[in-house]
């Protein structure tokens, strides 16, 4: 009965996400630090530029460098937190691996997109950005964040089982996330430029393809990271 399987899957992943959201709401491990990190970096960049005019590609590169490193600090917590508090085994005992992976990916997405919703307007104000194609920018960010969330969830589960996690996470994540990063920088630059970005379309298709590959492939590989069997 596929309908039943789908219902099981949704309720299992939902349980994991709901649990994480509740924990995050009570303790704010990740959201506050990630947001503060982003805002601090933006302010620093803005002040050091001192109102100098920068071109769209440079602005978008700065935005994504900031978002990338904030994701490194915020999203790596997903499983490090569980491992540190000894709750990883509870997850193993109660949850199926795919439910955990998709629940955590969804939580990462929620976390990252709520940070971006606050940071993007600040980016426009502080760096004097002329955002010409808001829809394109929103779609770029959403698709990039899906890929980022899934890959981060998988890598967080890997790093949580190793030593020197804080340092290891960006090292492991950078090569894996480089395609999203480069494409997101280009696509965001295009949404700041005058020409209509929609005509090419290649960037968005690429980001969507990466997002699909990361969520499907990540779910498959996660099984091996999560279960000790």
């Amino acid at each position: 009965m596929p309908a039943r399987l789908i219902m099981d899957f949704i309720s299992g992943a939902w349980a994991v996400m709901k649990k994480d959201a509740l924990e995050e709401y009570r303790a704010r491990y990740a959201f506050n630090t990630t947001l503060l990190f982003c805002v601090t970096c933006l302010v620093m960049v803005s002040y050091s530029l001192g109102g100098a005019v920068t071109d769209p590609m440079l602005q978008s590169a700065m935005l994504w460098v900031i978002l990338f490193f904030s994701a490194m600090t915020g999203l790596s917590r997903a499983f490090i937190k569980e491992e540190d508090r000894g709750t990883m085994n509870t997850l193993r005992l109660c949850c199926r691996a795919d439910h955990v992976f998709y629940g955590k990916t969804a939580m990462n997405f929620l976390l990252m997109s709520s940070v971006i919703v606050i940071v993007a307007p600040l980016f426009i104000i502080l760096l004097n950005v002329n955002m010409r194609h808001v829809g394109y920018f929103a779609l770029t960010t959403a698709l990039a964040t899906v890929g980022l969330s899934a890959v981060s969830a998988l890598l967080s589960a890997i790093v949580a089982q190793a030593r020197a996690r804080g340092m290891l996470f960006p090292v492991l994540a950078f090569p894996a996330l480089m395609p999203v990063f480069l494409t997101a920088v280009r696509a965001t630059g295009m949404s700041l430029a005058e020409a209509a970005p929609w005509t090419g379309g290649g960037e968005l298709v690429f980001l969507a393809a990466y997002a699909v590959a990361a969520t499907v492939g990540g779910g498959f590989l996660f099984e091996y990271v999560f279960s000790e069997q």
Partner: peptide
């Protein structure tokens, strides 16, 4: 960075496969 041997071999294998899976995207982008 992974002291437990049984974990190490699995985590390393997963990372090697993940990194390889990313290559086509890099070649494209």
């Amino acid at each position: 960075a992974t002291p437990d041997f049984d974990r190490r071999i699995r985590l390393a294998a997963v990372y090697a496969i993940l990194a390889f899976a990313v290559m086509p995207f890099l070649v494209f982008v």
